[in-house]
Design a protein around this nucleic acid. Structure first.
Lengths: 110, 110
DNA sequence: CCAAGGTATGTCACATATGACATATACGCA
DNA sequence: TGCGTATATGTCATATGTGACATACCTTGG
């Protein structure tokens, strides 16, 4: 690709890179999202096992019911930091966190 | 503790709770920090193994050298999200992340 | 000695994640 | 039917994280 076209594409908001970069970026992003979803499932499962409502979890975490719902659904607006702190806040052990991450499901291409 | 004293302490910016709550909070916070430090060490080790400078890592992550330095030192201003994305960005595998978290060092009381 | 490259630390404007709130939906029970 | 409880979804002000920059420190080699 010549630099003129590259500049034109970039001006239009596109990121220009090699195919390898493209694939790698996707792999990294996929791995990141997988971990996030693994923690989301971990939080939900733990909450159910402990028979807690989302509101109760919110109290323990210092957050709100709506945010807990977003956490469990893997909403893009929630950070892994918050998910981690939440799992720990309702009594999840670090080992449980590690297990959850280790057994994360692979995202399948659509 | 009577409610008057509790109110007085809270007005002064103190959080009042039971000893159990206090200890648990510390345990959770400790676990959280341990994981963060584990990822920080993971990032540093991986960077050295790959013979990359902090500036090069910054390019790969889309950040800056100063932030990479903060990441590796476990600076409070960096999130676990950023640490995770950085490890993945320089080629760390999800499995490596899990290993790092599983082998995190315990923080010892001072 | 100096210059160059790597790392650490502080600051700041800006972007993003967050708690709170409103509201919708769903289910059970009287 | 209505009422209470639980969960989902959207919005918003603001607290927090972030990239960028300046700058200082330390090696290494010229």
């Amino acid at each position: 690709m010549n630099s003129t076209k590259k500049a034109r594409l970039e001006a239009a908001g596109w990121k220009v890179g090699t195919a390898a970069e493209f694939l790698d970026l996707n792999k990294q992003q996929a791995a990141f999202v997988e971990m996030k979803l693994a923690l989301a499932r971990c939080l939900h499962a733990l909450r159910i096992r402990r028979k807690l409502s989302q509101s109760r979890v919110a109290e323990l975490v210092g957050s709100s019911q709506s945010r807990v719902a977003k956490m469990e659904s893997g909403d893009p607006s929630v950070s892994i930091d918050l998910l981690l702190r939440s799992v720990l806040a309702i009594g999840g052990s670090p080992a449980a966190v590690v297990r959850a991450l280790a057994s994360r499901k692979k995202l399948t291409p659509v």
